[in-house]
Structures are given as C-alpha cells and as structure tokens.
Amino acid sequence: MLSYFLRRLILVLPVAFGVSVVCFALVQIAPGDPLTAIMPVDATAEQQAAMRAAYGLDKPVPVQYLIWIGNLLQGEMGRSIASGRPVADEVFGAVGNSLLLAAAAAVIAFPIGTFLGFLAGYYRDTLLDRAVTALSITGVSVPNYWLGIVLVIIFSVNLGWLPSMGAGPGGSQDWHWDWAHMRHLVLPAVTLAVVPIGIVARTVRALAGDILSMDFVTALYAKGLSRGDVLRHVARNAAATALSVMGLQLGYLLGGSILIETVFNWPGSGFLLSNAIFQRDLPLLQGTILVLAMFFVGMNLIVDVAQAAIDPRVKRS
C-alpha cells in the first residue's frame, strides 16, 4: 500500500511541472500588457520601463519562469498588481473560502446523490427509478447560476430568510462557525450541490443496477444472507468507483464555482479569479490557477490511493 502511494506520488511530479509551465505560459500568451491596467494613461516610457523592471517583466521568459518557480518553492508567489498584497495571502484566503463552500456543497450532495442513486438502482425500471433519473438530468442540465438567482429571489428577496451575498454579516471576510456566518453559506452551497447530486445519483444508480444483476448477488442470497447483508456487499463493490467520481466532483466544485461565487459575491477563488482576469492581475491569476490546479492534482492522487485501498483489484494492475 505504501509503495503504491509512493509510486503514485512520483507520478504526480511531472504532472505538477506541466501544470506550472502551463500556468506560467497561459499568462504569457494572453494578449495585452499587464502594466496598462495599473499605469496612468499618460505615463512616460521611462516610467513604464521602471515599472516593468520592478516586476521583472523585462527579463527573458525562461528566466522569468525560473525566478517565478524559485520564489514559488519558497512560498513566495509575488504581489498582486492591483492590490499590492502578497498573492499567497489573497489566494489561500480565497481558496479557504472556496474549500468551505465546496465542502458544504459536497456534504449536501454526496449523501443525497448516493441515496437517490441507490434507490433508483435497486428499484430499477420502476416509477421511482424514472423519477430519480428525471430529477438528476434536471439537476445536471439547469444552469446553476440561474438557479442561484431564482433561489435568491425566493429565499432572500421574497421570504427574507437567508442573506444573498457575502460570507458573513456586513461583508466580513473572516469565517466563524456561528449561525450569523453559516446562514450565508446555505444558498450558495445548495445551489452548488445540485449538479453533483445529479451526477452522483446517476453514477451510483448505474453501479448499483449493474452490481445487483451480477451472479455473485444471487450467490449471496443463496448462502442465506439477508437483504441488508447483500446490500452491504453491493455498497462495498460500488464504493471504489463512486468515491472516485465524488473526488473528481469535489475538484470541480472547488474550481468550477466561479459563476456561483460571482452570483453570491462569495469571496472565494472563483471570485478572485474573475477579478484577477478583469484587472489583468497576472501574478494573482497565475497563483490562483496554480493553487486550484494543484488541488485538483492532489485530489486525483487521494482518489487513486483511496480506490486502491478499497478495491483489491486496482492495486496489482
């Protein structure tokens, strides 16, 4: 098990390198000059050159990359061009908020999706199955930013039950585990949970349906096991695949919540990313993308290892 983990870990290194190169290059090939966003329109050529030198933008691209990666390894991600604050502070604060939102959405989505999917798979081809399938297709298809706005209209504007914006009262950025803060989490988390509910439900339905029709399930009944015991066997068989889908969904929740964070003004990485793009804030953009990508890579690693731990057939191959 440990050797499998180490092997997977070594395989991650080239991926991480590739990700860093792409992150760096992405910003280099983007059209436009980052300095135009922060320099006054009438800045002289000398002033522009001085600014360029201050940010190291006058050096050749490979050198810029080496400097960037060297700083990165020391935990130094540069300073945001727009705010002047260290990128690391901004990114990790925002990623923390996104992680909170993604985790909340996952806590809502995974149990519900698993339960619905199992129900549909067990009662395959019944009315219940069709209802779950219809529900999950709707969940996956409805644009979630639209759903978010609808929920805001209903629960914030009309009913006034829940706040529609921010991560805390009065636009506070610091998270506390109290109701005043948590009520801000409800609407964006529910909105974000809708897609993974659909995806997890469909995956688990297919898994449970397939496994239940296998010979070994008949054999389990034949040896005198109760339905509960048999379902435990089915769950164990489905677990590896279901968990890997959930892991990837968690990755998507983290990186793919840009629209939801924008709708709800949630101070997360998506929100930060869209601001960085509009302000042409290159260091911030690079840092955010890199951290998100690394989270995704890490998530994949965890999923692979978890899968091998659960399913004995994975390890040897």
Partner: peptide
C-alpha cells in the same frame, strides 16, 4: 438457504464477491 441446502454455481469467477 445455505444451511440446509446450498449451491455451487457454474462460473466461480462470477459467483464469488470480487472485493472480499
């Protein structure tokens, strides 16, 4: 089932649970 009367299946590769 399994106590008084038990069964051996045709294909043991399919009749045994793969993850136990």
């Amino acid at each position: 089932r399994g106590g008084d009367v038990s069964m051996v299946f045709q294909d043991p590769g399919l009749a045994l649970d793969p993850v136990y």
